[in-house]
Amino acid sequence: MAYRTGYCINTDEGIEVLEILQYEFMINAITAGILASIACGIIGVYVVVKRIALISGGIAHASFGGIGISYFLGINPIMGVLPFSLLSALTIGTFSKRTDVAEDTIIGILWSMGMAIGIIFIGLTPGYAPDLMTYLFGNILTVPQSDITMMLALDAIIILVVYVLYKEFMALCYDEDFSTVAGIPVEKLYLLLLCLIALTVVVMIRVVGLILVIALLTIPAALSREFTDDMRKMMFLSISFGTAFTIIGLMLSYYFDIASGATIILVMSSFYLLHIIIKKWRTISEKPFEV
């Protein structure tokens, strides 16, 4: 099925680009990239507008504990990450709402505690830990079909929840006090939002690894904010940016044989920085009163 893609292409270059689509791993990689971009495009918008990138980083890093425990128990690491990231999301959320400890203190503690648990369990596991680097830094070229199915399911959950609770999440992110007075269960919804971040982290681990998750979660959304004031449009735009950057990064990493997760992140951050520089340069050169 895949080899029919090159069918009508006449130029040599075109054939070369499409040839890589013959490989099933490449199709899987692109699918994984798109699925991850959907999750982080939607949830990333909330992370950016509510300014909770640090919490997201905490959830992602803490979920390393789940990877360690999975190695120890000999199960699929993604299966360990899922409950662990949900648990850390709920813990960070509950502590920051219910106690008077500063939120960033809680995040810092959970962040390193999760990683410490992971390190101890990996140490306890006999032999060496295969694919450990995959979970830390991602390897989009080795995503198996089973993970694609799971990513698809998680994407479906994220889309469904955001669809039905769109106005509530928007209100919660914009003005918590008003939302409480308006009668919506702010704390529960906030915890739910953190859980969605946790699910997104799980979707993204295969693509960029848990160390690099924050970039994928924030850059496409932050870039899309530059082009629209509408939250829905931001989501669609950031999904498109995420997809484009992931595929560009994937191609570069394939041709130059370099780490895919890191390449994707570098592509994204370069585009974002370039945009900021161009924008700055334009505002300087457009100053009307300058002689």
């Binding site: 507008v49 928007m170 209100a171 008003f178 904010r225 004031d229 939250m231 931001m234």
Partner: peptide, 11 residues
């Protein structure tokens, strides 16, 4: 915040 006047009032 990416929200317009109508959306704020609808809250």
């Amino acid at each position: 915040f990416p929200i317009n006047v109508r959306e704020v009032v609808l809250m």
